[in-house]
Structure formats: C-alpha cells, structure tokens
Amino acid sequence: MTLHNHLRRASIGAIGLAGVLALAACSSPAEPAATETAAMVEGTAYPVTIENCGEDLVIGAEPASVLTIGTSAVALLDAAGASDRIIARAGEFGAELPAGLDNPPTDAEIVDPSDPAIEAIVGTEADVIVGYGLFNASDDDLAAVGITNIVIDGECSHDAALTDKTDFDAIFADVERLGTVFGTSEAAAARVAELQAEVDELSAVEPAQTDGEAAAVVYYFFDGATMSARGGQGIADDVLSRAGFSNVYGDEPSVYLEANIETLLDADPHTIVLAYGLYGESFDDALALFMAEPGAENLTAVQEDRVIGVLASDLAPDPGAVRGLRQVLEGTGALAG
C-alpha cells in the first residue's frame, strides 16, 4: 500500500458525472492532430508526446493552468519554471509547501486537502493535473471532461511496485519532462544542471560512519498510525546510499511499506531517519510516536542519539530530495550544518 493510499481519509462517493459533463460541455478541447514529439531549445512545438507511467500521452497545446495534487507536483513545476501556471492545489494533507521554491503558488486555492473528486477538479477550470495520481476520480471521468492527468514519475506505482527505481536521475528527468510539456525546457535544463552539481558535491562527502552501515527511514502518516518505512524503490533509498548507508528495507520492491518495531529491533540499524510533517506534525510529535513503540528505547540509534529528523517532503520524488540528502549528511556529522 502506498503513502497516498494511506492518506485517503474518505471513501469514494457517488459522482454526479452528468452534471460535471454539462459544466465542461462548453469547452471540450479538440483532439491533437498529430503525436510527434518536437522539443526545441527554447519552448516546445505542439502537439508533444511524453511518457506517462509507461504510456504515451499527447499534449495538444501549451497548458495555461494547472491543478497540482501533492507538494511534489509543486516542487517539480517550480524547478521546471512553470509554477506560475498553478491555479489550484489539492492532496497536500495539511503539509507545508516545500522550502526554497522560486515561485511558491501561495495564492492558489486549496480545493481539497486530500484527494479531490471530479466536481472539484472541473471547478478549478485547470487545463491539466500534475500530481501523484487520483483516487476519487477515474481516468474515464477525466477523459469525459477533457482534462489531462500527468502523473509524477516517482508516484506511478500506487499499489504496485515501480518498474524502475526512483533515484535522483529520475527526478531530474521528470523536471525536464515537465519543461517540455509547459514550453519551459531552457529553464528546466538550467535548474537540473544546478541540482545535479549539488548532488554530485554531496555524494562526494565522506560518510561519518563506516560505509555500508544499516539505516532505516520510518514515518507515521497520521497521529496514532502504525509505523511505516521506505523501501528500495523510492528516492529515500538513493539518499541513504549516497550518505553511505544500506537501507534496512532496501530489498522491499516498493516505495512505501508497512513496517513494525520488531523488524527494526531485529535490524538494529546504526541510524534512523524519522520523516515528519506529512500531516503538519513536528519532529517532536513524530519522535513521541516513535518512542512509544515497545522496545524503541533499546535501539542502538536511540541510545546513541542517532535519530535524524527530515521533513517527509524532503524525501519525496522531487528536487527537495537534494535537501533531504544534505540533512542526512548533516545529521550524521559528515557535513557541517
């Protein structure tokens, strides 16, 4: 089960699609005339075809307005130079916007803190959706009202394992893909070059611990939830690897997984990275949940003060993961804070 399935707070109700169709009937977009991809040095020639979770997706014209689902969509669009197109947001579950955005969409209305239904989506009048996928609206619903859904590369798994692991290269490719979609390829390429240089610099830092020591990334998706962890398919695994760790849950072919204190006690990792802020909670809040786990006080990482707090948004499949890598290195003492 993925993080975003965990975060679903409401069941899918009956959707009045007929009414939604009436709202959208006056602005049905024309089908694109061709499917050739033609990215240019400056801007994009449309129609353009991108890969979207393993399938070709045709973008007929440059999108002027976007509904984002989740904070990673905001961070990726900002890096691609297209965050000025964001007119509405959803699926952030009370989390703060990522730090360091060049153009944060603070004026964009939050139409639903969780997963929006089709009525809310249509009400935004957005040309496209960019996000982690949808649960309260189907592909058929979106097709009926002519809205394109672009899914973040690192969130294509949902309940299944990703075909390819999400690492920093995949994040950079996603920024460039969005640059192609929004005609901002030049800005996207420049930002990727900056991010790549920072990752290269951080990856060259000597680990403070013995290379290959075990570590785990754990988190709670709401107050009172059971412990969850990050597996081998997500960006957190790449972060741990570049910081000189092996991931306790790295053999799990998933991004997010349900875990328990027993497996953590058995592994007794050198370091624990506690991701927090998923629903607006502080590190202290998350740490209290963790320390309430039976036997948590017996973990070597706890006894030797090696529990590192990192914002969950900095361990997501977007440019914020560069900041997450820096925080892990600082938390271990390999890099001065």
Results as ranks from 00 to 15, higher is better:
G146S: 04
A14C: 08
S228C: 09
Y132K: 07
T226K: 15
E109H: 04
F182E: 00
E31C: 02
D305V: 12
V310C: 13
P32W: 01
F135Q: 14
E119D: 02
S65D: 08
N52V: 13
G320V: 12
V192S: 06
E186Q: 15
V218A: 00
P317Y: 05
D238H: 10
T263I: 12
G224V: 05
G54L: 06
Q327L: 05
F221N: 12
D112W: 03
M227E: 02
D102E: 12
E62H: 09
G123N: 09
P47Q: 03
L21S: 09
M227W: 03
G100R: 12
I118D: 03
I118V: 14
T210K: 14
G100M: 10
P116E: 01
G320L: 08
V175C: 02
A216G: 03
V199E: 01
E62Y: 08
R323D: 13
C26K: 15
D139K: 03
A170H: 14
I50Y: 08
A95V: 01
I147S: 08
Y219S: 07
G331E: 03
T166E: 00
P32Y: 00
T163D: 07
F172N: 08
A316Q: 14
T332C: 00
R306G: 12
T210R: 12
S313R: 14
L76D: 10
V145M: 15
S254A: 05
D167N: 01
C156L: 07
E252G: 01
C53Y: 12
T166I: 05
V199H: 00
R191A: 08
E31D: 10
N247V: 01
N5F: 04
G232N: 02
E51S: 13
D174E: 13
V20E: 07
G81W: 06
Y132N: 06
L311Q: 15
E36N: 11
N136A: 04
A312R: 11
E51G: 08
E213F: 05
C26T: 15
G309Q: 10
G232V: 00
L57D: 06
D318G: 11
I110T: 15
P105T: 02
A160V: 10
G123P: 05
R89S: 06
F245A: 04
A22K: 15
D174F: 05
E36D: 11
A286F: 01
P105L: 02
V145W: 15
G234N: 09
S157N: 15
Y279W: 07
A144M: 02
G232S: 01
L101R: 09
G81M: 02
V218Q: 03
Q209H: 15
D141P: 11
H4P: 02
G309Y: 12
